[in-house]
Amino acid sequence: MRHHRKLTDDERRQIIEARAEGTPAAVLAHRFGVSTRTIYNTLSRAKGARPGATTTISTRLSARQLAGFQAALARRSITDQPAALRRLMEAADILLRPAGPVVRDHLQAWGAQVATEGAAVNHIARKLNEAKLRGRPLPFTDDDMTTIRTFAAGLVEFAEEFRILWEAQLAAKTREVDKALAGLGAQSEALADAGQPNLSRK
């Protein structure tokens, strides 16, 4: 067990909150990989420190929304929901950042292509519709067929390119979420391995 590592600010906060709820110092020492003396020192310093300004927020969730959030945390072996929420809020600037310039440029280029080729397809459709209304032979040429096939192929190509871009963006966001929640799941796993009850806040 590690007894000399430095606790992070978030870990100190978790220790203070868990101890206030009655979690034994020995359990906290095992959970965070430090000595019981470190736990008591952390608590002692917290008593003499002036608490920072905090804000309590509340929100209403449906049972489905809460279950989805809990399931997402469970996949990462995280049971401390308040700590997870705080971590995600701290990383909100990154997690909620709009799509990158590569995606925007791709969408703009595709929009311009659709506008050009789509106008040509619409022209063909109007030409055929006008001939039909006047009872004339449909003036559908090989060039018209090529235009339509080119347009259809462009749609398929865009769909595949956008799928690749989207998956890359999703993977990047997933890495940021993992980074924001790093360490929370490891604590629960350490307790499970030691056969200790999980006393994290719920």
Rank of each mutant, 00 (worst) to 15 (best):
T36I: 14
P137A: 04
L28P: 08
M89H: 14
A49I: 03
A53S: 10
I124F: 12
K202C: 07
D144F: 08
T147S: 09
Q108T: 11
A131C: 05
G195Q: 12
R104G: 02
T42G: 09
F69M: 03
F162C: 00
I57T: 12
L66D: 06
F151S: 14
A109N: 09
T55E: 11
W166T: 14
P51H: 06
H30Y: 05
L88K: 02
D9E: 14
L155C: 12
L184P: 04
E130Y: 01
S200N: 12
K202L: 10
R75L: 07
T55Q: 09
Q81A: 15
A83F: 00
R104A: 13
A25Y: 13
R201Q: 13
V27W: 15
T147N: 05
R19D: 11
I16D: 14
L133Y: 00
R76A: 05
R87K: 14
K179M: 08
K173D: 04
R75S: 09
H4G: 06
Y40H: 09
R60L: 12
Q187L: 15
E176M: 10
E160S: 14
R50V: 13
A115V: 05
A172K: 07
S188K: 07
N122S: 14
T141R: 01
A190T: 10
A186P: 05
E161T: 06
L133R: 13
R13E: 10
R31T: 08
L133V: 06
A120P: 00
L7C: 04
I78R: 02
L165D: 06
I124T: 08
I15Q: 05
T59E: 10
S188W: 02
N122C: 11
S44H: 08
I78F: 03
H4P: 01
G118S: 05
V156I: 08
A26I: 11
L88R: 02
A168E: 07
L73R: 02
S200K: 01
T36Y: 04
R149P: 01
I94P: 00
A182K: 10
M145A: 15
A159F: 04
R149Q: 11
F162I: 00
H106R: 08
F151G: 14
R76Q: 10
I57H: 10
R31Q: 07
T146I: 12
R37I: 08
E17L: 10
G118M: 01
V102I: 08
A26R: 15
D9K: 03
L133F: 00
A18D: 08
T36W: 06
M145V: 06
N122F: 07
T79V: 07
R104M: 10
Q108G: 05
L181Q: 04
V177W: 02
A83Q: 03
V34D: 09
M89W: 10
A83C: 04
